[in-house]
Amino acid sequence: MGKSSKDKRDLYYRKAKEEGWRARSAFKLLQLNDQFQLFKGVRRVVDLCAAPGSWSQVLSRELYENNKDSEIPPKIVAVDLQPMAPIDGVTTLQADITHPKTLSKILEIFGGEPADFVCSDGAPDVTGLHDLDEYIQAQLILAALQLTTCLLRPGGTFVAKIFRGRDIDLMYSQLGFLFEKVICAKPRSSRGTSLEAFIVCLGYKPSTTWKPTLDLNVSTEDFFKGANIGRYELRDDLEYEEEKRNVAPFVACGDLSSYDSDATYTLESDITRISLDPVQGPTAPPYKKALEMKRNGEIKR
């Protein structure tokens, strides 16, 4: 979250800065929790693709802060490839979620006990090629799901960010094989103009015949082989086959009276429009040098 003119327009963005959240997406998890009581009874939770850490902040405040005086406070692990500033009660791991070592580290922190809740607010950079972007997003969810199937307790919950594109019904269908209930949830703090939504998977029901194992040399495709979740598996004749699709029920979460992320709010005049400092500075983009060169007039036609 940078310091910019955006301050004026997005109420959730401003509220996030005021309340000290690292990103506006904190409100999305809060509204999801209001709807589904995701945090109820949770003792062990994993936040995947966690940087900059707003979901971990929510988990820390809702689970750790409220229970830190108890004998064994709930355990929160946040994983990301990027480094993350520390958060009270959260163990941060800078690690690859597809790596078996990451799994064993998390299990170590949990004392060998399975997780009650796994969530992921991860989104890849978009290219603009819609089908490729959807594929990459699906891969990210599958990577999170891989790890989840290795550490979630039966009956546990999995929540991940999705983009409702043309093949999202394939994802709904496949997750339906692993969970009792799959819901497409849209918090009011997520813009109506954006295709973003969250897949809420309740009641993990692991397969009795399939044992998930993380292996560096096994791709996500190979990993789910034998899981019988309706994924197409490579056949010698390469015959075209329509995979199962299913529309998950849609639930809008957050009170109707809560702020609308599509609306334009005129700020009360006593709140002067000061630009708030970002909670966490932006990371250097890969094209930083190209930008500098353009600024210095080194790039010409």
Binding site: Y232, E239, E241
Partner: peptide
């Protein structure tokens, strides 16, 4: 004649 594989 369309065929398919399991990956992008």
């Amino acid at each position: 004649d369309e065929k398919m594989i399991n990956d992008w």
